[in-house]
C-alpha cells in the first residue's frame, strides 16, 4: 500500500517554540513544574503518561493558558494574550469540538477566511488535499468517523501554512492506514523545515514519527533528546515478571542459578516476582528450566510493561 503525500512546501520563515522555566499551577496543584525546552524545525514527540501535563504544556505553547511562572515564546514572541502569534501557529486540540452542521469544506474554508488569506478557497483545497479528504469534503462534519474528523481538524490547523504546528494526541481514533498517512504528513512537514510538536502517551507512535522526544512525567521534564538514547536507557532496566507455578519455592531455587536472573522474590500468596536482567535469555530459559525440574508454570506476566513504569524508571534513572 502506498500513500502519496502531496508536495509540502517550505515555509517562508522557520519557527521555534521556547519554554523558559515554565510552571503552571492551579491553586495548590502543580500541573507543570519548571520546564525549560527549546524546539526547532523538525518533528518532536511530547511523550508522557496520561495526566502528566502534556495538554497543559501544549495549551501554554498555543497561548491558550497563561504560565504561572516563566516564559513561553513562539518564534520569539510571547504566546499569551497575543493573537497575532496564530498567523504562524496551528494547533489541533485533543478535545474534538467542531460545529457538526458545517461540511468539511465549509469548516476548512472558514478557517482560511478567518486567517485572512489572499485566496482562501485555494488554501482550503490544498489543505484538504494534504490530509486526503477531498472526496468527503462536502459531507457534514457530524457524519465523519473520528479519524476523518481528526484529519479535517488538521487541515483547518495547517490551512495558513504555519511555521509551527502543535497537535495534541493526533493519532487518537485513527485506523492504521490513516495513522500511517498522518505520520507521513507530519514527517514531510518536519522535513520541509516546520516545527512540529505532537503529544502521545504511546511509545510506538513517537518512535515511528520522530527522532527527538521530550518526556514529561508528573509535570516535570524527565528526559529530552534523541529517541534511541532514551530507548537504550529503558532496555537497561531489569524486566520484572510475576510467575505462578506448581512449586514456587523449587522454581525460585533453580532460577537463582540462572545468569539472566537478577533477583527472585517469594511471596506465598502472590507467587514469584522475578527480576530478569536479560529479557530474551530469561524467556527462552524458563520453559527448559521448568521442564527439567518437572514444575508446571501456570502464569508468567510481565509487570512493568506499562508506560507508567517505564516513565518512573526514567525519572529514577541516574
Amino acid at each position: 500500500m502506498t500513500t502519496v503525500v502531496p508536495a509540502v512546501t517550505t515555509p517562508a520563515t522557520t519557527g521555534s517554540v521556547q519554554l523558559l522555566g515554565v510552571s503552571k499551577w492551579y491553586g495548590n496543584v502543580v500541573a507543570v513544574n519548571d520546564i525549560t525546552m527549546s524546539l526547532g524545525p523538525g518533528v518532536t514527540g511530547l511523550l508522557g503518561p496520561n495526566g502528566a501535563g502534556k495538554t497543559t504544556v501544549l495549551h501554554m505553547m498555543a497561548g491558550f493558558l497563561a504560565p504561572s511562572r516563566g516564559e513561553v515564546l513562539v518564534s520569539g514572541t510571547p504566546a499569551w494574550r497575543n493573537p497575532s502569534v496564530y498567523s504562524g501557529l496551528g494547533i489541533v486540540v485533543e478535545r474534538e469540538a467542531v460545529h457538526g452542521f458545517l461540511t468539511g469544506w465549509e469548516f476548512v474554508h472558514a478557517s482560511a477566511k478567518l486567517h485572512r488569506l489572499p485566496d482562501p478557497a485555494a488554501a482550503a483545497r490544498r489543505a484538504i488535499e494534504l490530509v486526503e479528504m477531498t472526496e468527503a469534503k462536502d459531507r457534514r462534519l457530524d457524519t465523519y468517523s473520528k479519524g476523518m474528523r481528526q484529519r479535517m481538524r488538521v487541515a483547518a490547523a495547517l490551512v495558513h501554512d504555519p511555521a509551527v504546528l502543535l497537535l495534541d494526541e493526533p493519532f487518537n481514533g485513527m485506523d492504521p492506514r490513516q495513522r500511517m498517512h498522518m505520520m507521513e504528513l507530519l514527517h514531510a512537514m518536519g522535513d520541509s523545515g516546520r516545527t512540529v510538536l505532537f503529544s502521545s502517551h504511546i511509545l510506538e507512535e513517537v518512535e515511528q514519527v520522530s527522532g527527538t522526544v521530550q518526556v514529561i512525567v508528573a509535570g516535570r521534564l524527565a528526559a529530552s533528546g534523541d529517541y534511541r538514547t532514551i530507548r537504550r536507557l529503558m532496555t537497561h532496566r531489569p524486566h520484572v515478571f510475576t510467575l505462578r507455578s506448581s512449586d514456587d519455592r523449587a522454581l525460585a531455587v533453580a532460577l537463582m542459578a540462572e545468569p539472566s536472573v537478577a533477583g527472585v522474590d517469594l511471596d506465598p500468596k502472590k507467587g514469584l516476582t522475578v527480576k530478569a536482567s536479560d529479557y530474551g535469555t530469561f524467556t527462552r530459559r524458563l520453559p527448559k528450566l521448568a521442564l527439567a525440574q518437572r514444575i508446571r508454570v501456570h502464569a508468567l506476566v510481565p509487570t512493568d510493561e506499562s508506560l507508567e513504569s517505564v516513565f518512573s524508571y526514567l525519572v529514577g534513572a541516574p
Partner: peptide
C-alpha cells in the same frame, strides 16, 4: 462545548 477554541486560535483581535 469547546468550539470557541477554533475562533480563538486565529489572528483575530
Amino acid at each position: 462545548d469547546g468550539t470557541l477554541a477554533h475562533v480563538l486560535a486565529k489572528p483575530l483581535s
